[in-house]
């Protein structure tokens, strides 16, 4: 493990226990985030994006079984951490914005109540700041709302979530996530429920706040366009594996994996060149996933070896990793 990584996920495999057996969802996911870096994790519904980031906060549901793999945050293994280390991680280290701001805000408490809970929890981890005053709490909450460019923050502190619009609720969630100093922000599809003009505003806000505070970001999204707007580096996920990773520009100019190419081809473009044919077939059944490459049943360039062996993520050009046998001869 290199010293410079803030977060390092190493070969993580997670299954969910259900009545019919084991859903083998994550299959050897490795991911790293450096300090101050903006990383996007892109994939379609059901590919394991959310499972991956839930493991970072160790908030996987009870049915989840971690077969192997390690999650290091600042060198500490999160999956085997003590309760006090976990508290520190969740209160000072990592914060998360969820997809649906309506569901992630408590409907019967005001925004002010909810933000001050977060701030209190964070300050309780801070040994020097045990003498917490209610007045400074109010000021910190106001400052957080102002930083998220919410108009009239005093009124919003007294409002209940249902009194705010969807875009404002998501801004409140961002304000809450960044009200206290953090080192990593995880945004799980933060703009999926928002209109395109509001999406633009929220993405710009997240991007600016992350840059200003010099913290790292993991953005989870299903939209390649959103990832391109924000991220320095992109991981593409398919059926529980990382299939390609590269710098943003490199990925869009020269996508290598057949799935990345097909996905990019499907995205409707403003230039109006028509829409690609889509990807034939379905996601594999997680109860009995294919032995070899999980994309093999849908791959237009499938070879005999793909059925037997799972390709590993290899660097084929500088900083461009892909897990596909097509590029095996190029692998270093």
């Amino acid at each position: 493990m290199s010293e410079i990584n803030l977060l390092h996920i190493e070969n993580l495999s997670v299954s969910y226990r259900i009545y019919r057996g084991l859903l083998k969802v994550l299959d050897g996911v490795s991911l790293e985030v450096r300090p101050g870096e903006k990383v996007a994790l892109v994939g379609e519904t059901g590919c394991g994006k959310t499972t991956t980031v839930k493991s970072i906060l160790n908030i996987l549901p009870r049915q989840a079984i971690i077969h192997r793999g390690k999650v290091f945050f600042k060198g500490k293994d999160v999956l085997r951490a003590s309760d006090s280390d976990l508290n520190y991680l969740r209160r000072r280290g990592v914060s998360m914005i969820f997809q649906d701001p309506t569901a992630s805000l408590f409907p019967i408490f005001t925004v002010g109540d909810q933000i001050s809970t977060v701030i209190r929890a964070a300050l309780s981890e801070d040994a020097n700041n045990t003498q917490l005053k209610e007045s400074s709490l109010f000021e910190t909450a106001l400052k957080a709302l102002r930083a998220a460019s919410l108009p009239d923050p005093e009124r919003i502190l007294r409002s209940y979530p249902f009194q705010l619009s969807g875009g404002m609720r998501q801004r409140v969630c961002i304000a809450m996530a960044l009200a206290t100093p953090r080192e990593l922000l995880i945004a799980d599809e933060p703009t999926t429920n928002l209109d395109v003009t509001i999406q633009d505003q929220v993405l710009r806000l997240i991007s600016n706040m992350v840059a200003e505070k010099n913290i790292s970001l993991i953005l989870i999204t299903h939209s390649l366009g959103v990832a391109r707007e924000i991220a320095d580096r992109i991981y593409i996920m398919y059926a529980g594996s990382i299939i390609e990773m590269s710098q943003t520009d490199d990925l869009f100019e020269n996508p290598l994996h057949p799935y990345s190419r097909a996905l990019l081809n499907c995205v409707p473009k403003l230039t109006g060149e028509g829409i690609g044919q889509g990807v034939p077939g379905h996601l594999p059944d997680y109860l009995n996933p294919p032995l070899g490459c999980r994309f093999e049943p849908r791959c237009p360039k499938s070879m005999p070896i793909c059925k037997k062996i799972k390709p590993s993520l290899k660097e084929v050009a500088k900083g461009h990793f892909v897990s596909c046998f097509l590029y095996d001869s190029l692998g270093g």
Partner: peptide
């Protein structure tokens, strides 16, 4: 405003 808010995937766009 709408057109400039659309996230895109290429330089041509």
């Amino acid at each position: 405003m709408l057109i400039s808010s659309v996230p895109v995937v290429s330089k041509a766009e």
